[in-house]
């Protein structure tokens, strides 16, 4: 298990060198996108930014305007499984290289990660202040009509910590841990 530094945009070879269990420290651009964004992309609307090589962060941040600058007050990950119906398409169509969220995702996303070269990275759920501390600037926002938590925020981060839990080799830590824990608990049954 290595600590890997990633700078966005990321190329395919770098992504394919990552494995389940690796810690990553991300610097550069993150675009937030959760339910409403994925749903809108799914209906065929083109994204307002070039997503190639970029990372989508499943997050509904708390943003406050100070003067004419947006400041991020809390920005932990939200549950990713809600984007499972859409995520594979976004990976395929817009060549994103990574997704950050919590709780992991399912088979469709795992297959898309393998086929198109992407990874799922798990941030620490609930760690809203640690995540916010690594967000150095908010450079812009799109699709504000979806409401602030659902909009596409352009974040600039330094050393944002996450763990690779689904890689581009078809491995999922979530699947592994589920199977192992199921086995162990079956032996512990009362």
């Amino acid at each position: 298990m290595a600590l890997v530094k990633l700078n966005t945009p990321i190329d395919e070879a770098t992504i394919r060198s990552l494995h389940v269990g690796d810690s990553v420290s991300i610097s550069g651009r993150l675009y937030t996108g959760r339910d409403a964004v994925h749903h809108r992309l799914h209906t065929g609307v083109k994204p307002p930014v070039d997503l190639e090589g970029q990372i989508i962060y499943h997050c509904g941040p708390v943003m406050v305007k100070e003067g004419d600058q947006w400041v991020c007050k809390a920005a932990g990950p939200t549950t990713s499984s809600r984007e499972e119906p859409y995520q594979w398409e976004v990976i395929r169509d817009y060549k994103i290289r990574g997704v950050i969220g919590k709780g992991g995702m399912g088979e469709k996303t795992l297959a898309a990660c393998k086929e198109y070269g992407a990874v799922y990275m798990h941030a620490i759920g609930g760690a809203a202040q640690v995540c916010a501390a690594s967000i150095k600037r908010v450079d812009g926002v799109d699709w504000m009509d979806l409401g602030s938590p659902e909009a596409i925020w352009h974040l600039w981060v330094e050393d944002f910590m996450a763990i690779v839990t689904m890689d581009a080799h078809g491995q999922s830590l979530h699947k592994q841990v589920f199977e192992e824990s199921k086995e162990r608990l079956s032996h512990l049954k009362a």
């Binding site: 708390v62 609930g126 202040q129």
Partner: peptide
């Protein structure tokens, strides 16, 4: 910082 522990 007297800010919410978690955004939810």
């Amino acid at each position: 910082s007297s800010l919410p522990l978690c955004q939810d």
